[in-house]
Amino acid sequence: MKMEMLLALMNIMITLFFIVPIEKSSMAAGKKKTKAVTLKMAQQCQEMLLDNKWRLDLSFRGITTVPKEVLMLYGRDEVNLSRNLIKKLPDFCETMENINVLDLHSNKLEQLPATIYHLKNLQALNLCNNCLKGVPKELGLLNNLQTLHLGMNQLKVLPGSIGDLTELRYIGLSDNQFTRKPHCLSRLKKLERVNLDRNPILTED
Protein backbone atom coordinates (compact mmCIF):
# COMPACT_ATOMS: atom_id res chain seq x y z
CA MET A 1 0.00 0.00 0.00
CA LYS A 2 2.82 2.38 0.90
CA MET A 3 4.51 1.57 -2.41
CA GLU A 4 1.31 2.39 -4.36
CA MET A 5 0.93 5.70 -2.53
CA LEU A 6 4.56 6.55 -3.23
CA LEU A 7 4.18 5.79 -6.93
CA ALA A 8 0.99 7.88 -7.11
CA LEU A 9 2.77 10.81 -5.43
CA MET A 10 5.67 10.52 -7.86
CA ASN A 11 3.28 10.58 -10.81
CA ILE A 12 1.64 13.75 -9.49
CA MET A 13 5.02 15.46 -9.05
CA ILE A 14 6.15 14.46 -12.54
CA THR A 15 2.87 15.75 -14.01
CA LEU A 16 3.20 19.08 -12.24
CA PHE A 17 6.82 19.39 -13.31
CA PHE A 18 5.92 19.19 -16.99
CA ILE A 19 2.46 20.79 -17.07
CA VAL A 20 2.99 23.95 -14.99
CA PRO A 21 5.81 25.39 -17.16
CA ILE A 22 3.72 24.68 -20.25
CA GLU A 23 0.74 26.54 -18.80
CA LYS A 24 2.95 29.49 -17.82
CA SER A 25 4.48 29.67 -21.28
CA SER A 26 1.04 29.41 -22.85
CA MET A 27 -0.23 32.29 -20.74
CA ALA A 28 2.80 34.37 -21.64
CA ALA A 29 2.27 33.57 -25.31
CA GLY A 30 -1.35 34.65 -25.02
CA LYS A 31 -0.44 38.16 -23.91
CA LYS A 32 -0.76 40.79 -26.58
CA LYS A 33 2.54 42.39 -27.38
CA THR A 34 2.79 45.95 -28.58
CA LYS A 35 4.03 46.04 -32.13
CA ALA A 36 6.54 48.59 -33.28
CA VAL A 37 5.76 50.24 -36.60
CA THR A 38 8.47 49.50 -39.12
CA LEU A 39 9.02 50.81 -42.61
CA LYS A 40 8.31 47.34 -43.97
CA MET A 41 4.99 47.17 -42.12
CA ALA A 42 4.00 50.61 -43.39
CA GLN A 43 4.84 49.61 -46.94
CA GLN A 44 2.66 46.52 -46.68
CA CYS A 45 -0.21 48.55 -45.24
CA GLN A 46 -0.47 50.91 -48.20
CA GLU A 47 -3.28 50.70 -50.70
CA MET A 48 -4.20 52.70 -53.76
CA LEU A 49 -7.71 54.16 -53.83
CA LEU A 50 -9.97 54.54 -56.84
CA ASP A 51 -9.01 58.18 -57.30
CA ASN A 52 -5.31 57.26 -57.53
CA LYS A 53 -4.65 58.40 -53.99
CA TRP A 54 -2.78 56.36 -51.42
CA ARG A 55 -4.03 55.25 -48.01
CA LEU A 56 -1.84 54.07 -45.15
CA ASP A 57 -3.91 51.81 -42.88
CA LEU A 58 -2.28 51.06 -39.52
CA SER A 59 -5.50 50.48 -37.58
CA PHE A 60 -5.86 47.61 -35.09
CA ARG A 61 -2.07 47.31 -34.66
CA GLY A 62 -1.80 47.83 -30.92
CA ILE A 63 0.75 50.59 -31.47
CA THR A 64 1.40 53.22 -28.81
CA THR A 65 3.54 55.68 -30.75
CA VAL A 66 3.74 56.88 -34.33
CA PRO A 67 7.24 57.26 -35.74
CA LYS A 68 7.04 60.39 -37.85
CA GLU A 69 9.59 58.91 -40.24
CA VAL A 70 6.97 56.38 -41.30
CA LEU A 71 4.38 59.06 -41.98
CA MET A 72 6.90 61.16 -43.85
CA LEU A 73 7.60 58.28 -46.22
CA TYR A 74 4.20 56.66 -46.59
CA GLY A 75 1.54 59.05 -45.32
CA ARG A 76 0.62 60.37 -48.73
CA ASP A 77 -3.11 61.12 -48.87
CA GLU A 78 -5.05 59.21 -46.21
CA VAL A 79 -3.71 57.89 -42.91
CA ASN A 80 -5.73 55.55 -40.69
CA LEU A 81 -4.32 55.12 -37.19
CA SER A 82 -7.61 54.26 -35.51
CA ARG A 83 -8.20 51.64 -32.82
CA ASN A 84 -4.71 51.68 -31.36
CA LEU A 85 -3.20 52.75 -28.02
CA ILE A 86 -1.68 56.07 -29.07
CA LYS A 87 -1.46 58.64 -26.28
CA LYS A 88 0.62 61.29 -27.98
CA LEU A 89 1.27 62.34 -31.54
CA PRO A 90 4.65 63.47 -32.83
CA ASP A 91 5.05 67.05 -33.94
CA PHE A 92 3.77 67.21 -37.49
CA CYS A 93 6.24 68.03 -40.22
CA GLU A 94 5.79 70.16 -43.27
CA THR A 95 6.50 67.04 -45.35
CA MET A 96 3.05 65.71 -44.35
CA GLU A 97 1.13 68.57 -45.93
CA ASN A 98 -0.43 66.33 -48.60
CA ILE A 99 -2.56 64.35 -46.15
CA ASN A 100 -6.29 64.81 -46.87
CA VAL A 101 -7.77 62.39 -44.32
CA LEU A 102 -6.43 61.60 -40.84
CA ASP A 103 -8.30 59.01 -38.76
CA LEU A 104 -7.28 58.73 -35.10
CA HIS A 105 -10.51 57.57 -33.52
CA SER A 106 -10.52 55.07 -30.63
CA ASN A 107 -7.06 55.75 -29.23
CA LYS A 108 -5.84 57.18 -25.91
CA LEU A 109 -5.03 60.69 -27.08
CA GLU A 110 -4.91 63.25 -24.28
CA GLN A 111 -3.81 66.23 -26.38
CA LEU A 112 -2.96 67.35 -29.89
CA PRO A 113 0.27 69.09 -30.86
CA ALA A 114 -0.06 72.73 -31.84
CA THR A 115 1.90 71.89 -35.00
CA ILE A 116 -1.19 70.22 -36.42
CA TYR A 117 -1.65 73.42 -38.42
CA HIS A 118 0.99 72.08 -40.84
CA LEU A 119 -1.65 69.75 -42.32
CA LYS A 120 -2.88 72.47 -44.67
CA ASN A 121 -4.65 70.11 -47.08
CA LEU A 122 -6.54 68.15 -44.43
CA GLN A 123 -10.21 67.76 -45.33
CA ALA A 124 -11.37 65.20 -42.74
CA LEU A 125 -10.12 64.69 -39.19
CA ASN A 126 -11.53 61.99 -36.92
CA LEU A 127 -10.65 62.27 -33.22
CA CYS A 128 -13.66 60.42 -31.77
CA ASN A 129 -13.39 58.21 -28.71
CA ASN A 130 -10.20 59.58 -27.17
CA CYS A 131 -9.36 61.34 -23.90
CA LEU A 132 -9.23 64.92 -25.13
CA LYS A 133 -10.11 67.67 -22.66
CA GLY A 134 -9.29 70.39 -25.14
CA VAL A 135 -8.03 71.05 -28.66
CA PRO A 136 -5.36 73.59 -29.67
CA LYS A 137 -6.39 76.91 -31.16
CA GLU A 138 -4.14 76.07 -34.13
CA LEU A 139 -6.84 73.64 -35.27
CA GLY A 140 -8.60 76.71 -36.63
CA LEU A 141 -5.82 77.17 -39.18
CA LEU A 142 -6.86 74.09 -41.18
CA ASN A 143 -8.56 76.12 -43.89
CA ASN A 144 -9.56 73.13 -46.05
CA LEU A 145 -11.14 71.08 -43.26
CA GLN A 146 -14.68 69.99 -44.12
CA THR A 147 -15.39 67.24 -41.57
CA LEU A 148 -14.34 67.25 -37.91
CA HIS A 149 -15.23 64.41 -35.53
CA LEU A 150 -14.70 65.20 -31.84
CA GLY A 151 -17.35 63.00 -30.27
CA MET A 152 -16.80 60.76 -27.23
CA ASN A 153 -14.15 62.89 -25.54
CA GLN A 154 -14.15 65.11 -22.45
CA LEU A 155 -14.60 68.49 -24.09
CA LYS A 156 -16.41 71.35 -22.37
CA VAL A 157 -15.46 74.22 -24.70
CA LEU A 158 -13.97 74.82 -28.12
CA PRO A 159 -11.39 77.47 -28.96
CA GLY A 160 -12.87 80.45 -30.75
CA SER A 161 -10.56 79.77 -33.69
CA ILE A 162 -12.82 76.87 -34.74
CA GLY A 163 -15.02 79.61 -36.15
CA ASP A 164 -12.29 80.28 -38.72
CA LEU A 165 -12.80 76.89 -40.42
CA THR A 166 -14.57 78.44 -43.37
CA GLU A 167 -14.96 75.18 -45.32
CA LEU A 168 -16.36 73.11 -42.43
CA ARG A 169 -19.59 71.26 -43.31
CA TYR A 170 -19.91 68.87 -40.35
CA ILE A 171 -18.72 68.84 -36.76
CA GLY A 172 -19.40 65.96 -34.38
CA LEU A 173 -19.45 66.87 -30.68
CA SER A 174 -21.63 64.11 -29.23
CA ASP A 175 -20.90 62.44 -25.89
CA ASN A 176 -18.86 65.27 -24.42
CA GLN A 177 -19.48 67.73 -21.57
CA PHE A 178 -20.86 70.76 -23.40
CA THR A 179 -23.56 72.64 -21.52
CA ARG A 180 -24.39 74.87 -24.50
CA LYS A 181 -23.72 75.08 -28.21
CA PRO A 182 -20.30 76.68 -28.79
CA HIS A 183 -20.75 80.28 -29.97
CA CYS A 184 -17.90 80.00 -32.48
CA LEU A 185 -20.02 77.66 -34.62
CA SER A 186 -22.31 80.54 -35.57
CA ARG A 187 -19.52 81.99 -37.72
CA LEU A 188 -19.31 78.88 -39.92
CA LYS A 189 -21.31 79.85 -43.00
CA LYS A 190 -20.96 76.49 -44.78
CA LEU A 191 -21.76 74.37 -41.73
CA GLU A 192 -24.58 71.95 -42.54
CA ARG A 193 -24.77 69.78 -39.44
CA VAL A 194 -23.72 69.84 -35.79
CA ASN A 195 -24.04 66.70 -33.64
CA LEU A 196 -24.37 67.58 -29.96
CA ASP A 197 -26.21 64.44 -28.90
CA ARG A 198 -25.76 63.17 -25.33
CA ASN A 199 -24.27 66.36 -23.90
CA PRO A 200 -25.56 67.98 -20.67
CA ILE A 201 -27.01 70.92 -22.59
CA LEU A 202 -28.69 73.38 -20.27
CA THR A 203 -32.17 74.48 -21.29
CA GLU A 204 -32.75 78.20 -21.48
CA ASP A 205 -35.47 79.64 -19.26
Rank of each mutant, 00 (worst) to 15 (best):
Q177V: 00
L173K: 10
G160T: 09
F178S: 07
K133L: 00
L142C: 06
S174M: 07
W54G: 00
K137W: 05
L49F: 02
I201Q: 02
L141C: 13
Y117I: 00
K40M: 00
E192W: 03
T203M: 12
D205V: 06
L145V: 04
Y170C: 04
E97Q: 13
H149P: 00
H149R: 09
L73D: 04
S25G: 00
E94S: 14
E192D: 08
E138S: 15
E138T: 15
F60L: 05
R61E: 14
H183E: 10
C93A: 07
P159Q: 05
R169L: 14
P159F: 03
M1V: 10
L89W: 13
K32V: 05
S25V: 07
V37G: 01
I86M: 07
S186K: 15
D164C: 11
M72G: 12
Q177A: 09
K190E: 04
V70Q: 01
F17N: 06
L185I: 08
F17H: 11
N80R: 12
K35P: 00
L112E: 01
I63H: 02
W54M: 15
L71A: 10
L109A: 06
I12L: 15
K32H: 07
K156D: 00
E4C: 08
D164V: 00
N153W: 13
G160I: 03
V101E: 12
V70H: 01
Y117D: 09
L119N: 11
L155Q: 09
K40Q: 12
L7A: 10
R198G: 01
D51A: 09
N107Y: 11
N130L: 08
P90F: 05
N153S: 04
P200V: 04
K156S: 10
F92R: 02
A36P: 01
L58H: 11
K189G: 01
H183I: 03
L122P: 02
F178E: 06
I12A: 13
L168E: 03
V157Q: 13
E23M: 12
